[in-house]
Design a protein around this nucleic acid. Structure first.
Lengths: 136, 136
DNA sequence: ATACTTCGCTAGATAAGTTTATCAAGCAAG
DNA sequence: CTTGCTTGATAAACTTATCTAGCGAAGTAT
């Protein structure tokens, strides 16, 4: 196994302690003040997706896991990557090495444009197949 | 100009019926039965991260936005990409493509443990389905 | 038939997210 | 000083997710 010591740049990526459960609030507050926006201005900028009152609670750390869509709105307003906020909150991110992308060696080519109905039919048919033939 | 004449399979209308609860529920149920698992078996497989009772409610469409982490657990058990479930629920995904429409339609049917025989059966069945219903 | 198990399901409770209404403090005119 | 407006913060209400406990149906074995 190549134990390559990732000698790129000193990884500042770890921005700070994963231990702090509530660092999201501080981060959001800093981002907002850095842009010189008020709570209500952010509410507007987010097209009412996040109320000023709610944002206040977020910044004060009273909310642990806001909805991903809330984070998306805020990320857009602050110009910060969505994934950063997601991670900070503790949501798992789509891993790029998982079964998602690489595992495409299967019938995915034909399945790329499945409709919801077709998808359902296929899954049911698969259930049927496997129930008839459990010894695959 | 990439004149991509929408040659995709005509989206079979927004699911013909109007009162369907949640598209996620049916998908989860289909995935589970396709694997021949019971609610409690899934609860176990997910290491108690998702209770059988909760899973039942999910499948019946009584829950609209389960936590991303719940979706992650289920995606792992069913061998389906996390992002697919996220999208179904309505959570925004980290956009990877920049400007142009790089966003491929996510296939819910990327099941990872299909056998070659199953794959073939499914493809034939899909062909059959589409021959019977060329375009709505 | 009686147990025993497993199934899907739901009622009830708790906890957390989100909203609406409201607050006290500050600042700029008039 | 007072009026008006804005700011950030709460309280309470409302909504939603999630868990625990238990029900009844269906199967299996004794």
């Amino acid at each position: 196994m190549s134990m390559r010591a990732d000698s790129r740049r000193p990884r500042r990526t770890r921005s700070s302690f994963g231990g702090r459960p509530n660092e999201l609030g501080g981060l959001l507050a800093d981002l907002r003040t850095a842009k010189g926006l008020s709570l209500r201005q952010v509410e507007e900028a987010t097209d009412k997706a996040v109320s000023n009152a709610y944002l206040s609670q977020l910044e004060k750390g009273k909310i642990r896991k806001p909805s991903p869509n809330v984070l998306h709105s805020l990320a857009a307003v602050y110009g910060v990557p969505y994934e950063v906020l997601m991670e900070k909150v503790g949501y798992l991110l789509p891993s790029k090495g998982g079964a998602a992308g690489r595992q495409r060696r299967l019938a995915a080519f034909a399945i790329e444009d499945l409709t919801a109905e077709e998808e359902e039919e296929l899954l049911k048919y698969l259930a049927f197949l496997r129930s008839r033939n459990p010894s695959s």
